[in-house]
Design a protein around this nucleic acid. Structure first.
Lengths: 341, 341
DNA sequence: CTGTTAGCGCATTCAC
DNA sequence: GTGAATGCGCTAACAG
């Protein structure tokens, strides 16, 4: 049987309350007494039963997720996963609230972060925007002892406790590596379609992509990046690569998640055989395109994993507990037509 | 505040004990009383606090993992992951025991399963061997109400509750798809190196591989499968593809996990540029080969995920609880040099 | 500074 | 058939 607080109280010759005080680093214990208790603790190899502690405390974890209101499939999926987590709230003793803010708006994010600071939260998760004012707001939260996790898009150099998302530079490198090999040494231009270069994750993908291209596939050239933003017409047009791209365009790299309907095949005179396309994020549209052979590969981040991971990390940080590192690594999923989930 | 047993007792006008009886479907309650209680339960939307229940019960989950003593990197990794889980046992209220049995030995597996049946376990996980006697042994366990999960290699048609592993047919298809595209339309033979065709997972991988080759890459031909078994010399030789394979061998598909040292480059006269190699399982050796460009891609199953998933599922089944399906899907990880973890 | 006591939500004797 | 009482491991008043 595992030792309990009673055992260590008896072994140290003190009362339960005193044991509890040193266990929870509360003041009001003489150094000598504290030492006695601590000795007993590791003499017996005591480990606290977190479930019992939470029961006694009536512990709940009030969490806030700050998400952009971006109207794209990936963000929709992310929202859905948070809702799933909210549905599990009772079993997990969490109390999750979502705060939606306008996309690409650092000021709004700062406001939301500062508002969160006014409450007594067990943790905050946010899709970061890469700006110093956001870093400062995160620092203010951290100062108050609130665990902070960035989600999907990171904020390096800030005081966030953890990043629940993929390595976007590696993702870009992977895309280049795949595309280059699929092209099998053929030279030519590749069109790059982005959401906005304001978001860090897209910038990093492009950076990784460009790096590998330069070293391993010098025959391939990158056309000026086309930013789709949230203008459906334009994005669609670019996606089809009809007028904007040269007729011999052999390849397309799509940094952003689709948000505007199905993806049309490359309708270039040269025939479709030589065209290669890689996109990010598995959505109904990219899935369909993959199945139809319109897209060759999709790089994906598992939004469900990201949300569950963020919650686990925030809870663990709130309790000062360790996490299973390997479990929290967000993979760069590569999907071909053949390994679709 | 969530309703508790007290609330539903009060609301139904009965005592705690009676509520507990209907909650745990125990006998000794009149039908009318039971109905009253059940009415109160879903009137108040009661959900049982599993943590509190486990505390009261002093619940622990005695689990058994039956693993082959195969001497290869992947199985070593699997063992290591189970040990990690054992280290977490206290926090997770599990009590995990590993039973090692000779590899490829259905009789030994049956003995282990029947031995497990003699104990009162909360669940059993096994790396299945595809044999009817094993199916029968699993059925006997299931008959006793013990949850059973297959790990890494499945046992279709058996009474196992769940399979914690990848879809190996899809994995084989993915390998063919990748290899075919990497070859970029070039024709030629591909060597296939297997562990043993006795194991279901390797058979399925080959099946998937062959199917995609036939439909999408008819120019590629599959050489007779070379079974490495556990003979180091032979495997090494085949891996190098020196005498056994034709000099113009363009590609290699390695079904099994490496177990015998580094992987040598393809030393064929034609030059290495055109050679393509895909292997299964990320180990120190495949990782090194990937980094050196000796291997192009590695398909991997995350042993840590498989073990953690098996434990979650067994616990959930033991308590009759629901699982987060998406969390338990074991991915076919694709690693290139660029997205190594 | 330290100890006593009463729960948290649930399961389980043992009476009635 | 049903209910009252006790305890799981821990925390939190409240006394001393």
């Amino acid at each position: 049987m595992r030792p309990t607080v009673h055992d260590i109280a008896a072994s140290a010759g003190v009362s339960l309350a005193t044991v509890d005080r040193v266990l929870n680093r509360r003041p009001g214990v003489r150094a000598a007494t504290r030492a006695k208790v601590e000795a007993a603790i590791d003499r017996l190899g005591y480990v606290r039963d977190v479930a019992a502690a939470n029961l006694a405390k009536g512990r709940v974890y009030p969490l806030v997720f700050i998400l952009p209101d971006s109207n794209n499939s990936f963000m929709h999926g992310l929202h859905a996963e948070v809702r799933e987590a909210i549905a599990r709230a009772a079993a997990e003793r969490t109390d999750i609230r979502v705060i939606e803010i306008p996309a690409f708006d650092p000021a709004a994010l700062v406001v939301a972060l500062d508002a969160a600071r006014a409450e007594r939260l067990a943790g905050v998760a946010l899709v970061a925007i890469d700006a110093d004012e956001v870093r400062d707001a995160v620092a203010r939260l951290a100062e108050k002892g609130v665990p902070v996790v960035t989600l999907v898009s990171d904020l390096p150099g800030s005081r966030r406790d953890h990043y629940a998302g993929v390595d976007n530079i590696a993702a870009g490198r992977t895309a280049a590596s795949l595309l280059g090999r699929f092209l099998g040494g053929r030279a030519g231009p590749v069109a790059v379609l982005a959401g906005s270069m304001l978001v860090r994750d897209h910038r990093e993908r492009l950076e990784g992509f460009a790096a590998v291209r330069q070293v391993e596939f010098p025959g391939i050239t990158i056309l000026p990046v086309l930013e789709g933003r949230d203008e459906p017409q334009r994005a669609q047009t670019l996606g089809c690569a009809t007028p904007a791209a040269p007729a011999d365009l052999p390849a397309l790299y799509r940094l952003r998640s689709g948000n505007r309907g199905p993806i049309a095949p490359l309708q270039t005179p040269g025939g479709a055989a030589a065209r290669r396309r890689i996109a990010h994020e598995l959505t109904v549209h990219t899935r369909a395109a993959l199945q139809d052979g319109v897209i060759d590969a999709v790089l994906n981040q598992d939004a469900g994993h990201e949300v569950r991971s963020a919650i686990r990390i925030l809870k663990a940080k709130a309790d000062g507990l360790a996490v299973v590192e390997a479990q929290e690594r967000i993979r760069i999923d590569i999907f071909l037509r053949d390994n679709l989930p």
